[in-house]
Amino acid sequence: MTRTAELPVEGVLPPLDGATTWLNSAPLTPEGLRGRVVAVQFCTFSCINWLRTVPYVTAWAEDYGPGLVVVGAHSPEFPFEHDPENVRPALAAMGIGYPVAVDNDFAIWRAFDNAYWPALYVVDAQGRVRYHHFGEEAYERSERVIRQLLAEAGKDVDPDLVHVEADGVYLAADWPRMGSPETYVGYARATGFASPGGLALDRSRVYPEPARLRLNQWSLSGAWTVGGQAIVLDEPGGRIVHRFRARDVNLVMGGRADGGPVRFRVTLDGEPPRARRGLDVDEDGSGIAREERLHQLIRQDGAIRERTVEITFADAGARAYVFTFG
């Protein structure tokens, strides 16, 4: 096994008793975890940056257990991510069976002095934090740290690193060609809004579309109420339009507040996406939003250039939070 550089001690595993509930496990404690290597990862289930780490972290949990205990700390970004009955099926659908602390009060987040989704902290068998990584990537480096700490604890380690073939929403971003940042549509963090007259805060307004959009601008059409974190469509037929440059376009959104579905249709430069469709739309661009989550709208192959994506909603009640890209 190739040994990583000597790992400094960065602190100790803090208490985990701030969780509001636990999924897949009884509550865990630093004392109960002593003797095993622990990987704590902060997550929130609609975050594309975290989703792209899932195949690697779940592979570590499967391949290196029981010497390694992976612990998810689900610290929610959006209101719908606070409900354990939303979190539970979302994680189960991803095949996540390791313990997850539902950190609705951000108590564990603060105990680690964390500031990022995703964030990974690796703790040795003596309960000392020996490594951290913020964001995506660095999978091989992180795995080698886990292997080194397992070896230090006297655990047998397979000679080979885990093999991961990520696809779908889990596929790594095309970083070299991506030219669009995440774009929040709630007014608390909105950037790039281009409809004439600007955003009307917390009240319904009929928005006109601008004559054109520049790269990384977006607009609304129709009657919408723009809140701090989400926008809600008040009448059928409203649209969201975004000018972007990326392989993938994702939108965190959902159907009506009462759980009812909302039909939508996606176009790319005014045409059905066909082979460029994402996982959540048909070739003609049709889709249905129900539960609030990340929806993959566009996935392109080949040349990447500036394009315009348009989402038209056939039903009122659609809720949207943030565009992300890959």
Results as ranks from 00 to 15, higher is better:
Met1Cys: 09
Met1Trp: 12
Arg3Thr: 14
Thr4Trp: 00
Glu6Lys: 08
Val9Arg: 05
Glu10Trp: 15
Pro14Asp: 06
Pro14Ser: 07
Pro15Gln: 06
Leu16Asn: 04
Gly18Leu: 11
Ala19Asn: 05
Thr21Val: 13
Leu23Met: 14
Leu23Ala: 07
Asn24Glu: 14
Ala26His: 12
Pro27Met: 14
Pro27Ser: 14
Pro30Val: 05
Glu31Phe: 12
Leu33Met: 11
Val38Asp: 02
Gln41Glu: 15
Cys43Lys: 12
Cys47Gly: 11
Cys47Ala: 11
Ile48Ser: 13
Leu51Met: 14
Leu51Arg: 09
Arg52Glu: 11
Thr53Glu: 09
Thr53Ile: 08
Thr58Phe: 00
Trp60Leu: 13
Ala61Met: 09
Gly65Asp: 09
Pro66Asp: 13
Gly67Met: 10
Gly67Pro: 04
Val71Glu: 01
Gly72Cys: 10
Ser75Val: 06
Pro76Gln: 14
Asp83Thr: 07
Glu85Cys: 08
Asn86Leu: 03
Asn86Trp: 01
Val87Phe: 02
Ala92Pro: 00
Ala93Trp: 07
Met94Ser: 00
Met94Asn: 02
Tyr98Gly: 02
Pro99Thr: 08
Val102Ile: 15
Asp103Thr: 08
Ala111Thr: 07
Asn114Cys: 03
Ala115Gly: 02
Tyr121Ser: 02
Val123Pro: 01
Val123Cys: 00
Arg130Lys: 05
Phe134Gln: 11
Glu140Lys: 09
Glu140Ile: 05
Arg141Asp: 10
Ile146Ser: 02
Ala153Cys: 10
Val157Trp: 05
Leu161Trp: 06
Leu161Met: 14
Val162Trp: 09
Val162Leu: 12
Asp167Phe: 05
Gly168Glu: 09
Val169Met: 10
Asp174Cys: 11
Pro176Asn: 05
Pro176Asp: 10
Tyr184Ile: 03
Val185Pro: 02
Tyr187Leu: 08
Gly192Asn: 14
Gly198Ser: 13
Gly198Cys: 08
Ala200Tyr: 06
Leu201Pro: 02
Leu201Asp: 02
Asp202Glu: 13
Ser204Pro: 07
Tyr207Asn: 07
Tyr207Lys: 09
Pro208Val: 05
Arg212Trp: 03
Leu215Gly: 05
Leu215Pro: 09
Asn216Cys: 07
Trp218His: 11
Trp218Asp: 03
Leu220Ser: 06
Ala223Trp: 02
Thr225Arg: 13
Gln229Met: 15
Ala230Ser: 12
Ile231His: 00
Gly237Arg: 02
Arg239Ile: 03
Arg239Cys: 13
Val241Pro: 00
His242Phe: 08
Arg243Phe: 01
Phe244Lys: 03
Arg247Ala: 10
Arg247Trp: 00
Leu251Gln: 03
Arg256Tyr: 00
Asp258Cys: 01
Gly259Arg: 10
Gly260Phe: 01
Pro261Asn: 05
Val262Pro: 01
Arg265Pro: 00
Leu268Trp: 01
Leu268Asn: 03
Asp269Gln: 01
Glu271Val: 08
Pro273Trp: 03
Leu279Met: 03
Asp280Leu: 05
Asp284Val: 08
Gly287Cys: 04
Ala289Tyr: 04
Ala289Gln: 03
Glu291Tyr: 06
Glu292Asp: 10
Leu297Thr: 09
Gln300Lys: 08
Gln300Val: 11
Arg305Leu: 12
Glu306Cys: 11
Arg307Thr: 13
Thr308His: 12
Glu310Cys: 15
Ile311Arg: 04
Thr312Phe: 07
Asp315Thr: 12
Asp315Ile: 10
Ala316Asp: 11
Ala318Asp: 10
Ala318Pro: 06
Phe323Met: 13
Phe325Val: 09
Phe325Arg: 06
